[in-house]
């Protein structure tokens, strides 16, 4: 006791300490902030300005107006939203059982499943998409098997269309959904199930009244993540959707790299970002109010 008070007395004056650490703070943060401002904030600002100017560098909203006046562009935006929604649904269906299995298992098994969920995710999306090409193309694995088994006599069109795109997107992003749901399932207090059982609830009842409602925060954040990622995915729609699937990122890419209409390309990507943020925040708002309603009812 006496020693600690002595140590306190012997510590250097507070003022000195503050000055020292303030300089250290600046020193440590400077490189990261330089990169952040120089390679992120300034470019983003420049892009925003670019989308709001015409050839004579005058302020204009023409690029945004052009997008909204053209039904073709509307169609592309709608297609993007539609595909992202299907991707979310697909990911949700595949994720829930895996997340439940992860929550029910322990130790080694859970670690192995987690590893297998994350593993594909750490290899380039181009390579995973190429793998799907081998499975889905006209002479691919599924068509070969079905043709040889005599189930079909014409190869099924499984890629270079919306189906292939959604399969590829689900595969790309399912890991986020699984982890989001699993984390919320991990936090469920097991005694709730005991309490449920004591009250006479069977497995199904327990699932409906305990597991499902308590996993909803994870489900919601998984939906938000997968939806936002799908909206801005470029590689998978290009490789598995081909030319027949037109999505916003591909449209942007085309404007930037081929048509070389940078202002329009920049405007399109901001419209994409704005739409995504709008849809995601509406979704969050709706699900949150719903949750409060449940609280007030009970």
């Amino acid at each position: 006791m006496e020693q600690t008070s002595q140590l306190k007395l012997k510590a250097p004056s507070k003022l000195e300490h503050i000055i020292f650490s303030k300089w250290v703070v600046y020193l440590l943060l400077t490189p990261a902030l330089i990169v952040l401002i120089g390679v992120f904030f300034i470019p983003m600002l420049l892009m925003l300005v670019q989308s709001l100017t015409d050839e004579q560098s005058n302020f204009t909203l023409a690029n945004y107006a052009l997008f909204f006046s053209e039904p073709f562009y509307w169609g592309v935006l709608w297609q993007t939203i539609k595909l992202s929604t299907f991707t979310v649904l697909g990911a949700l269906i595949l994720s829930y059982p895996v997340a439940m299995f992860m929550a029910q298992s322990k130790g080694k098994i859970r670690a192995i499943v987690t590893f297998l969920v994350l593993l594909p995710h750490l290899v380039s999306v181009v390579i995973r998409n190429f793998g799907w090409t081998i499975i889905l193309n006209d002479r691919g694995m599924i068509n070969t098997i079905l043709l040889e088994a005599g189930i079909i006599d014409q190869p099924l069109r499984l890629m270079y269309n919306e189906l292939g795109t959604v399969i590829g997107l689900v595969d790309s992003f399912v890991a986020y959904m699984i982890l989001a749901i699993a984390t919320s399932l991990y936090t469920i207090n097991p005694s709730l199930y005991k309490a449920g059982a004591i009250m006479g609830a069977n497995k199904v009842r327990n699932f409906i009244s305990i597991t499902l409602p308590l996993s909803l925060p994870g489900v919601y954040s998984g939906i938000v993540l997968v939806f936002s990622l799908s909206m801005s995915a470029f590689v998978t729609p290009t490789l598995l959707g081909g030319t027949s699937v037109k999505v916003m990122p591909a449209l942007t890419y085309q404007q930037i790299m081929f048509t070389l209409n940078w202002p329009l390309g920049a405007a399109i990507s901001f419209i994409l970002l704005g739409t995504t943020i709008f849809l995601v925040s509406t979704f969050t708002k709706v699900t949150e109010t719903k949750r409060y309603k449940v609280v007030f009812k009970s």
């Binding site: 952040l36 992120f40 470019p43 801005s232 990122p249 390309g265 990507s269 970002l273």
Partner: peptide
């Protein structure tokens, strides 16, 4: 705030960052 800002490049779609950097 600084923490949030430092992590913010991950919050934006890579596509948009790519375009912004191309222009810049």
């Amino acid at each position: 705030t600084i923490n949030t800002l430092l992590l913010s490049p991950l919050a934006l779609p890579a596509l948009i960052i790519g375009i912004a950097l191309l222009v810049y």
